[in-house]
Write a protein that binds this DNA or RNA. Structure first.
Lengths: 344, 344
DNA sequence: GACTCCAGGTAAATCGGTTTACTAATTTTG
DNA sequence: CAAAATTAGTAAACCGATTTACCTGGAGTC
């Protein structure tokens, strides 16, 4: 019965005996039409089961109704870190009022830049990219507002971040206060995607700088820290614990993300290692779920949700012609029970 | 220096002294052009900083390069349940190979249907909607493949789900085996969005049916169960615990999601209530993160990731002209330590 | 030398809407 | 009552690509 081909505005116009313009007006500017005509058109549209094509509409209005989140890893890997979830929630909460959807943009066949080129979005949020990243120039050419989260405060680029160096310093200073002198740092595998930016993330570098400063002030050499790289997930944390516990002699672990710490807890529990008696654990993020850990996890609490919602607000402002904005959000050292004295 | 207006294929054609067709060919069908022309065009495009407009391309190719995930709640609320994250990871893992992005589509100003109308996607995944939901008809009209997850196995609609009734029966039967006769069921607040489907979810109804059957076979009346409704999040679980612990006399809690159980654990720990000695807890989902709970959570393990990846595969097949498919995935009762004997 | 092929390229149609500029009929205004 | 303004509607341009159908000149064939 129903035509196998899509119902377009043209079909309605013909069947209702009016022009395409009139049909368009019936939906978008009913005031320009007599109510009789308007109703007739609308009735015909309903009868034919018409649904406006969002893509065609976008072409002229220049609004896709979605905000992109550029990921440097496949969705599968990126979402293993609940911290990303919190950021997404924040972005979503700001964008909801404007009817915007969130487009998760993973690398296109391994290419982050290609993904950024093809993304049909009104604005883009990129996590952890600096002002010299190619995507910055690309989005400028595409004339699409870009906001980075945890990028670098650079020229003419909006960013929402925290003082990573200071936070790392604060955390390590606290840990060193317990007498630890052999530390394990659990870092994230740098996402190596073929866009030339497969370097250690800017965040990690800033944190390492903070660590070094704290070490120096405590009179310790840099080799008091050993670095272990794993992917950012529960099982990554477990793998890290295995490595550290394999006779490294480290008495404290500092993990770059709470989810890693959670993995470490799991392994320690299985191995009968008591936190913080046998091993001290500290981390970064302060995600909601870290509340379920026993003993409580000492962590640098970053406002993930708020970072996201602030980035969302910056985006809305940018879309509205507002100026570039750099936002620095506070972190706090959440002291709980996972860090203790060096075991004998 | 650079023109303030977008660089289009037309600009390149003019500056390179060729037709638009040639420019298009240079990018998409280089074999149809002499290599000299092709290089000249490409060079001009690079010089002008040309980026093809994804929307315009989509209009003719009829491919957006994204798969929609229809949410019945704001992103902020939906992502509070890590189970959704696992499903997304699964969908993402299947779609990654095809270069597809994931569009999270929350209700548009409270309207789920309006959001579904406006979504520019190649295919849609809807979680928890039945074959009679309006979105099914809509997507048919839009000629966009639809797959439901945890919907109902219905006529001509692809679905990936599990046997919720049997799973619920199995779980409650196990719990009743410990002698419990006063049960608290922690349910999800039905998402009331103005599209007429603000009912208790189909999943919840099927599980309740399974519960009733188990109760009946154990010779208990239906009023042995008390139902509490909260939103699906850690704090929702905490709120549920507060309600249940406020003198209801319930000795076991069955939560509709692991994340709720996690909230319950937090509250119990704070209140000094021992699981499973003072209170038994069981749940549904079997998310990765439930591994960190102490004591281990007894739960109906559903393959969240696999559900997602299977849904993704069905979508790819559908996009390829494949047939409607209904997939039933297995669940297993994960017996761990959170359910015990009724306290005296 | 007439005929077919083919490589290389183009003009115009198309995708499905929105928007601009214009017309004709009616109403208001001075 | 003529001029101006408003109402209701339309044709055509436009958004920025892809795609179809066609053209042209030269090589290959018989």
């Amino acid at each position: 019965m129903r035509s196998s081909t899509r119902v377009t505005i043209k079909d309605i116009a013909e069947k209702a005996g009016v022009s395409k313009t009139t049909v368009s007006f019936a939906f978008n500017e009913p005031s320009k039409l007599s109510s009789a005509t308007c109703e007739r058109v609308l009735a015909m549209a309903a009868q034919l089961g018409y649904v406006p094509d969002p893509v065609a509409r976008t072409l002229t209005t220049r609004r896709t109704g979605s905000v992109g989140i550029l990921l440097c890893q496949p969705v599968e890997e990126a979402l293993r870190n609940p911290y990303l979830g919190e950021i997404l929630q924040g972005i979503g909460s700001s964008c909801a009022g404007q009817g915007l959807s969130l487009l998760l943009v993973p690398p296109f066949h391994g290419q982050v830049m290609e993904a950024a080129r093809r993304a049909a979005v009104d604005a883009l949020v990129a996590i952890g990219v600096g002002p010299d990243h190619q995507v910055v120039d690309l989005m400028q050419r595409r004339q699409i507002p870009l906001v980075t989260i945890d990028g670098c405060p650079g020229e003419g680029l909006s960013n929402v971040g925290v003082d990573d160096e200071a936070a790392a310093y604060e955390l390590l200073e606290y840990v060193l206060g317990f007498g630890h002198s052999r530390l394990a740092i659990v870092e994230l595998e740098p996402e190596v995607y073929s866009d030339g930016s497969g370097q250690t993330s800017a965040v990690a570098r800033r944190r390492m700088a903070g660590f070094s400063r704290a070490l120096g002030e405590a009179g310790l050499a840099v080799d008091a820290m050993r670095t272990f790289r794993v992917d950012c997930s529960l099982s990554g944390g477990m793998a890290a614990a295995d490595k550290v516990l394999a006779g490294t002699g480290c008495t404290a672990i500092l993990a770059m993300a709470d989810i890693l710490a959670m993995g470490i807890y799991v392994r320690c529990s299985e191995a009968g290692i008591r936190i913080p008696v046998d091993l001290s654990v500290a981390a970064f993020d302060g995600i909601q779920l870290s509340r379920i850990l026993q003993p409580g996890l000492t962590t640098i609490s970053q406002p993930g949700f708020e970072k996201g919602s602030e980035a969302g607000r910056v985006i809305l402002s940018l879309l509205d012609g507002g100026p570039v904005r750099q936002v620095l959000m506070p972190t706090t050292l959440q002291v709980r029970a996972s860090v203790g004295q060096v075991p004998d």
